[in-house]
Amino acid sequence: MASHQKRYKDDNSVKGMLSTSICGIKLSNPTVLASGILGITRQSLEKAAANGAGAVTLKSLCTVERRGLSGPNMFVFPGGMLNAVGLPGQGMDNAIKDFEALDNFSVPVIGSIFGSTIDEFGIAAKKMASLKPAMIEANISCPNIDYHEPYYSSIEAVEKITKCVKANSGRIPVTIKLSPNVYNIAELAAAAEKAGCDAITAINTASGMVIDIESGKPILSNKSGGISGPALKPIAVRCVYEIYDKVNVPIIGTGGVTDGKDAIEMIMAGATAIGIGSACYYRGVSAFRQICDEMQEWMRKHKVKGLDEIRGKAHG
């Protein structure tokens, strides 16, 4: 009995160690299933939550049904992963019927949206808001979509999209997902903050290409795609570091985090929560729990009681 009680108490203190709050949303731990990984069905979100994710993100949806690109869509190279899936999705209207609601999950759900025009961002946000997600993510940075203008690298476009999505999201907090494929990511984050966003998600994948030298052809059907996994991590850490210096809103640090030490590094760069994507391949869906366990182990070893103690530690 005594040992039972002790274990229970430990569990509570463990929960406390990693507990995180972002835009007023309480997370039992900072790991967030990143958009584009699983996230197509209710069950896949529940699967990530059951495996320890502190929050989960839907795969980005827009106002229309999209088939995406033909394969090869995704493969692993030494050091990382390359993908160009082309944002397939059932569209917001089908998703509303499919999901019914997003406020009845065991963990907070982030509804991710994108559009091919600024107006479409607004329409998608309004529809997504009707599902009552804990947060709305505007994915302005997918490298595989032909925008009418390069949204992700234009300060003006970032401001316009942020304002439009905010205006259509009611009281639901909005995060803007930024691309690393820009000259100065911190300036774009600052523009989104000025336009009223509640958080920044950084980063999406970095643009890249792998050529098969036997056939002499790029492997992806789209030729180029987005790099994720360990190869992306130093880029993501640098971006989060620069954004943290420039803005006050919290950052969901995303890019190549595969183990607990990577997550700690991202927090030290300034992240509040940690996006997890490709790690679900490297370590399976249980990556969330493994990363949390490793973070706790590191924190205990270094006598760190909460993540606030080390957030942004790499600065100054």
Binding site: L38, I40, Q43, N73, V76, C280
Partner: peptide, 20 residues
């Protein structure tokens, strides 16, 4: 199926990732 290694989420049958 798109990735074949368990992350794209297209092949789910109920809560099971079909490819893995």
């Amino acid at each position: 199926m798109k990735c074949g290694f368990g992350i794209c989420g297209n092949c789910l049958v109920d809560g099971h990732i079909l490819c893995t």
